[in-house]
Amino acid sequence: MFKKLFLLILLLGLFNHTSHAQKRIGIYSLSTISSKSGHLFGLDSDYNGLFRAIPAYCVDYFSNNADFITIDRKNFQLIENEREIQKSESFMDGYVVGQGKSEGVDLICQSVFDVDTYSLIIKILDVKAEKVLCSSDKKMDKNLFGIKDLKQQVTGMLLEISSKCFENEIPVVRVLETKGKKARKVLIAAGSNLRLRSGYKIEIYELVNEKIGNKTISRKNTISSGEILKVEDENFSVLEIYEGNEKLLELLNNNTPLFCKPTTN
């Protein structure tokens, strides 16, 4: 009886520890800005109709991560109240943080589309520190039909943010198939949990530390690229390599830590 009671207390303690470790992240509506004029458009902007999926992609991404309690604020009229007044982006950052405090969130995911540069910016704001924790800025790839692989581009940006803000890299696990001195297929430690899909293009890189003066700065050195052949489950996918096959096999045989990220290139 005592052992069962002790086990119950231990499990409750672990549960409470996990719960306290979770961060409350609020996903806010997309806003559009003109970098030339500094004008922030309202929620009824023509561009917002095109990009209304972006906050939904952010909700989908973070809600699948056990580190976060995701709060969807897609209907929050953040910009609507200010749309007739030209405000700077830095003003809006402070305005958003103020709203986050009133709603009790730890982090805010804010997306902004620049109509002049056709670029998307996704920011993570730390509510308590009242600052931008990290961000990803990308000029959207286009084709004849409009934006190319929007979900893949947004997913890639969110994975970059996870790496910058929360130090979450996607490791290359091991080689699955070779041909001579070339790696043909590899296993990566990411799957449906990170919303990857078959056909997604993937870039493989190593982290290289460069010493500049008194500082050591890490950079991503691209090794090879490929395409997801199969998403096996929540945690793993099979990647087919079509560039940099020999170098990739050499590094993996030498147990060099390698990582990967989605790309549209």
Rank of each mutant, 00 (worst) to 15 (best):
G49N: 15
P257V: 03
C165S: 11
Q99G: 10
S218V: 08
S224D: 02
K3E: 14
S102V: 12
T155D: 08
I161G: 02
D67A: 12
R52I: 12
S237H: 01
K247Q: 12
T155H: 00
C260Y: 00
S90P: 01
K201W: 05
L144R: 08
V175T: 10
I54Q: 01
E160T: 10
V238P: 00
I9N: 15
K220E: 02
K201I: 07
S136Q: 11
I122N: 02
N209P: 09
L150D: 07
E210H: 07
V175A: 01
K142R: 15
C165W: 05
E160V: 11
V238L: 07
I85K: 10
S34L: 01
A189T: 05
L10M: 07
C134P: 08
E130Q: 14
N168E: 10
I202D: 00
H17F: 14
C260L: 06
T70S: 06
I9L: 15
T178C: 01
V208F: 04
E103T: 12
T32Q: 04
K4F: 15
F41T: 05
T263C: 04
V97R: 00
F145I: 12
L194T: 08
F51V: 13
L159G: 04
L159E: 02
L133F: 08
N214A: 06
S35E: 09
G191W: 13
C134K: 09
I85T: 07
N253K: 15
N64I: 07
S136H: 11
F259Q: 01
R197I: 14
R195Y: 15
G94R: 00
R195F: 15
V115C: 12
K247T: 12
F236M: 06
I27M: 07
L11Q: 12
L239I: 09
N214Q: 10
C109T: 04
S45V: 09
V59K: 04
L40V: 01
N193L: 15
Q77V: 08
I188W: 00
Q99W: 04
A56Y: 04
A183D: 01
